[in-house]
Structure formats: C-alpha cells, structure tokens
Write a protein that binds this DNA or RNA. Structure first.
Lengths: 175, 175
DNA sequence: CGGTAATCTAGAACAAGTTTCAGAGTTGAT
DNA sequence: ATCAACTCTGAAACTTGTTCTAGATTACCG
C-alpha cells in the first residue's frame, strides 16, 4: 500500500483487512501507524544492509565509499518513491512514543555507514561526522520527496557532507 | 497553543474559536494545519533574522559565526520547546501542497546563514555547504525534540557540520 | 441607493487514526 | 480435562483534520 500511494495511502483499516486480522489486533502489535511504518523501515534497512555486505562499495577513500553506499540506497528508494515517502515521513513525524524504534533505525543506519567507512572503532569525531551525514541523508531525502530538490541536488549534498569524513580521518587514503 | 503542547495541541477548531472566526474562514486562509504552522515558522524566522541583524555573531571565521548563529537560534527554541516541536514537525511533515511555503522558510534560513558567513555572492560549493548545514540543523532539531539527542549533542553536530565551511572557503581566517 | 460578487458564519457531514468492549477462541499448566 | 489467562474478533464510538452547504453580512460599483 505504501508503494502505491505513500504515507496517506496506508490506511490502518485496510492494512488490518488485507492482513486478515482485526483492527484491534493490528494495534496490539503496532501501536500506531507511525510505529507500523517505522517497523517497515527497519526491515527494509536490514535487507539493504545485507545487500550491501555482499557487494561492498569500492571507492578509494572512506568518503567515497560512504557516498557510494548512500547513493546506492538512494537509487533503491527511487525505485519505490512512494514507499520511501511513507517510511521517511513516518520517521521524521515520529514523536517520543516511537523513540526506541526510531533509535533502532538510526543505529542500523550508523552501522551501514561505519561499514562503508571500514572503521572498527571510530573516535568521537568520526561519530559526529557520521551523525551529521545521517542528518543530511534524512533531510535531503525529505526535500527530494516533497519535490523541492532534484536527484542531482541530493547527490551533491551527499557528496558534500561526505567530505567531512576526510576532515576527521586524515589517514583514510592510506588504507 | 503550540507553545503549550506542541503540534498535537494545535487544534483547528480551537484556533478558529480563539481567533473569533469560523472554521471555514480559517481554512480559507490556511488550507491545512501544516500550512498554518509553517506560516508561524515563517513569521518566527523573520523575527529571528531581524534580531540577528541587530546583533551579528562575533566569531573569527565564517564557520564560527554560523555555528554561533545557529546556537543562538537553538537557545531561542529551547525557551519554547513545544512551539519548536509544532513548527519543525509541520515543516518536515509537509507534503507537496505546502512546497512554496516550505521553500520560503528554506530561503529565509539560507539568508540567515549566508548573513552569518558574511558572503556577498557565494559560489556553488558554498551553497552546497549551506544546504548541508540546513539539513543538519533541521534533522538535529528533530532528534532533540523527540528526545533522542541531548542539547550538547546538537551543539556538537552543528559545530561539526560548520567545519564544512572552512573546506569551501580557505581564506576565511584572513578576514 | 440597489445589486452583485465576495466573504463570513454556524453547523453538519465526512475521513481516517485510535480506543473501547463484549464475547468467542486458544493456550498452557496442573 | 479443566480452569485461568491470554488473544482475537467484530463492531461501535470517539477524535480531530477537512470539506460542504445554506444562508447572513459585507464591500464595491454604477
């Protein structure tokens, strides 16, 4: 349903019906629509993390590899823009009651980026850079989804923010 | 109302009532709740821009001045966290129908940052950096508002992303 | 003034997320 | 096999954003 029409097209009554489950049962497992969509994002992220593990990015520097990874994820999202809309809108609209789930998504994203960087134990500076990259990633997606930025612009923003990595890890080119 | 309880506490019926206006009239001027709150953000941003003009940031480098500016804005938001919640959630939840208004907010934010940088005509690299800073700013606010990041962490993220400016403007220290 | 278009009002109606509840069905331990 | 605890169902109710309508008010123009 999300793939068809994005956030708005996911209607809890319809979800319950196509799941062959009563509405109350759906709410038992997903306390709100946002919970449901954030859970969807978790599962998609896991899938993507698996895919990425099998085909790691091939860039020279950490910055290049992270940018390549995010662009690969971005292209995957472009194939299902409505689904992307549903998941990202849910993520940013989530209030405190969804914090644990959103945090889980964030940790998963962090793991993907750290994988791309090839870092075992990142320092505080590296972690800050990763957080900023995640911020940019989410917000750039939103501007793209709401039609205020082009695909090219998202690419530029990702590449720009990834330069932060070189700032915190001068020896990146040595590996 | 936003100051009291954030996004959820702003109820269109109540807004209409306290404005001494019929519900239909409210919807005539603000086609949706999100439009209303984004308009609120516009007006707050204008006010902040005026305040900042009177007391420009005093840092040495452009990066420092931008970070100082954003931290000042952040402290202002901390005084009304619920209002901040309402405005930021509206901004990121806005769909295409609100694009013009959201774009206006974005332009205003860009102007504030460029002011702090003290740049007359920024190059493409500078503009990319500014966009990334805005991304980080919005997303960091969200993580703070939903209780997933501390004030200190937001500060670090802002300072981290502002280092990007030095990357695109090596002569910053000369001024 | 008189008329016409625009605006406003009160209130109902509609849509979708969420809550609630009584009863039916399942499960697990003893 | 039985009982208690848990779970599921179907349906209604509730909430709040949004739309609609019929009439009242206002503003403008010749």
């Amino acid at each position: 349903m999300a793939s068809r029409g994005g956030f708005d097209a996911v209607q809890m009554r319809e979800v319950a019906e196509s799941s062959q489950v009563a509405l109350g049962t759906l709410y038992r497992y997903f306390p709100s629509k946002v919970h449901l969509l954030v859970a969807t994002m978790q599962s998609q992220l896991e899938h993507m993390h698996g895919t990425l593990r099998k085909k790691p990015p091939a860039g020279e520097s950490a910055a290049e590899r992270v940018a390549e990874t995010l662009m690969r994820a971005f292209r995957a999202l472009q194939r299902e823009p409505h689904l992307a809309d549903a998941m990202v809108r849910a993520l940013t609209f989530a209030d405190r009651s969804v914090s644990p789930e959103v945090d889980q998504v964030s940790r998963q994203t962090t793991a993907i980026i750290l994988d791309a960087m090839g870092l075992e134990n990142p320092g505080p500076d590296q972690l800050s850079a990763v957080r900023v990259i995640e911020h940019t990633w989410h917000s750039a997606l939103i501007t793209w989804l709401s039609g205020r930025a082009s695909i090219a612009q998202v690419k530029i923003d990702i590449e720009t923010v990834c330069r932060l990595i070189d700032l915190t890890d001068p020896g990146a080119g040595d590996r």
